[in-house]
Design a binder for these strands. Structure first.
Lengths: 344, 344
DNA sequence: ATTGGCACTCGAACTGTACGAGTGCCAGCG
DNA sequence: CGCTGGCACTCGTACAGTTCGAGTGCCAAT
């Protein structure tokens, strides 16, 4: 029953509320937007919006505030992304130019995003699960110490020192190296994880067999770390400024930032639209303990598949700007990582 | 002019204020502590303490609150560390048992400290500056890609992928490996940093010389990262709960946590007493932008020298408990790292 | 369908008052 | 000389009462 104009009124309410942080009344809508109708008419529309639970009044005689459902309608149907300014575009470019490695790139990504939006920025690492193991190297540091290095084709490298139960000489190490390499290189991380399980089975007793079993365990752990989704974040400090935006405290947000796991799940489970954009609003995050926070994110393309970058902030956030910023950064990131892939 | 009993009154004020979070009056001191004198007498003592600026009254007729100077006197002369409970000791042990590597150990350290104290926990990494480079390994991933791995005897490992300007075959790599190894292994990180500067000088032109220069740059960066002091933290979320403890906002603290550099300097510049304990209180941290925060820390012993663990919280914190917790964790850490050294 | 008018609601801001915790000071006591 | 009880005074807090104004819902008129 909500008319077209009614939706425009909703849009106006969301925009004004985000800007002023105060409940918006019919009068101020008439003043600030040119609807060409009187305040009384707007009031009628607002009554309908309230019936639909898209807006609510904090108390009997005050202006209206969008509900979470209202924000949802706004984001889905009403929001048009605000294109970034030239300065913002150049900021992204200069921030992300010439990163030292993947870690560096991810850190810079969240920094620029938090700078652009003033919110907490989040970025998923590209997944290594489908990356291929290209090298396994064993470096003997001491007779009973081996450095195990794993390299994937997606830029992931990991290393760990193994302390062996018995000393090995160079030829033993060579045997180990050959065996591991034959079994595991070329496999995807996922396949190698399965394969490594069976590696130490069967024969036992010789020093080399013992070592293989030990290494299999360590390599398994390293592979698990590769498979594990990771998250980088920046801008937690901005939350302190937004404190009054949260009815409760910012504690759940800080906790989520520190734990990472929750946010990782949340980011993974978001549903993107056809443009690769996603938003999760207020109570939709209740299951994650974040009923007062919203998260917007954009997919980006990396060798291992798509991953997401986005920002987290109060429900009352500037969705068009934040979505636009996330999308811009995601696009730039896709470009960088594709270039990286091309040069490999 | 402050009498012995006056100091005991100061101690009582600090203790009660930390506990109740309310200005403490002469009456409540008489009630809660057995001084054996009347409230009026306490009031006289309090007047003297106020003359010395060890306590202050928020407004004319209210109880007193310790000043930063008062806390300082309390910490220096009055505080007796509260020994940890058995449960706390076992918590430390079980948390820190059998870490996978140094990173893991540091992370667990700050976790257990934040759990024990309910404050933000900070830990400096042991310094690698005096560690020795034991290995340099080059792994050729592709004709124009080399994985450079550096290993120190203090548990530090770093790796980076170098993209070469020209393809190299295995024999070229062997030459590189031999040259780098001869020049750098056995050196301390500090020495190697100087040595690596001169590495690419002189001859140029051949593929190997070009590669050496490139690798020198990369190794220099990696060594710089080794030398860089690092910090791990946990418990930022606890700040949200302590919010009302900060007159201003918690923003500066969150910012410091995110930046790390400031906290690193602060931790480095603290002055320890003869027990290896240090405290920096309130306005003493003004230069670091943290005039409302206190930090207590304890030295621990690691192969590369001493480093610090501690906690950060509001000026009004429980110094005896926090100092005791930091000391206990530091001692355990020293033991672990010395054991680790012994087994190497 | 839109509008102007009007009565009504309710929070914010301000005032005044009473209360009580806590102080400073002082005369008296051991 | 240090300690004590007493007393007047200060000031923040809590509570109640008041006003003010923004904003609403409803309705009759257009």
């Amino acid at each position: 029953m909500v008319t077209e104009r009614g939706l425009q009124v909703l849009r106006a309410i969301v925009q004004d509320y985000v800007e002023t942080h105060e409940p918006v009344g019919s009068k101020s809508i008439v003043d600030r937007h040119s609807f060409g109708v009187s305040a009384a008419t707007i009031r009628n529309d607002m009554a309908l919006l309230e019936d639909e639970e898209l807006i609510a009044a904090p108390h009997t005689s005050s202006g209206r505030v969008p509900t979470d459902k209202g924000y949802r309608v706004f984001v889905n149907h009403l929001a048009q992304l605000r294109p970034l300014s030239g300065a913002q575009r150049t900021a992204i470019e200069s921030f992300l130019t010439d990163p030292a490695d993947l870690d560096d790139l991810m850190v810079r990504t969240v920094r620029v995003l938090t700078q652009l939006t003033g919110q907490v920025a989040l970025a998923q690492y590209p997944s290594f699960a489908r990356a291929h193991l290209t090298h396994i190297e064993l470096v003997s540091l001491a007779p009973n110490r081996l450095l195990v290095v794993l390299v994937t084709d997606a830029g992931g490298v990991s290393q760990r020192i193994a302390v062996l139960p018995a000393d090995l000489d160079e030829s033993d190490v060579a045997v180990l190296r050959a065996r591991l390499s034959a079994q595991l290189t070329g496999q995807t991380v996922r396949e190698a994880t399965d394969r490594v399980q069976t590696l130490g089975e069967g024969s036992e007793g010789t020093r080399v067999d013992q070592a293989i079993r030990l290494l299999a365990g360590i390599i398994g752990e390293e592979l698990a770390e590769f498979r594990q989704e990771r998250l980088v974040m920046a801008g937690a400090a901005t939350l302190a400024r937004r404190e009054q935006d949260f009815r409760g405290s910012i504690h759940p947000l800080l906790e989520a930032i520190e734990e990472q796991v929750t946010l990782l799940r949340l980011m993974s489970e978001m549903v993107t639209d056809e443009q690769g954009l996603a938003a999760s609003i207020g109570t939709e995050n209740e299951a994650f303990g974040l009923p007062e926070a919203s998260i917007v994110a954009s997919n980006y393309l990396a060798p291992g598949g798509t991953a997401r970058v986005g920002v987290m902030g109060p429900t009352r956030m500037d969705y068009p700007s934040n979505l636009a910023a996330a999308r811009a950064v995601a696009r730039y990131l896709s470009r960088l990582l594709d270039e990286d892939e091309a040069s490999r």
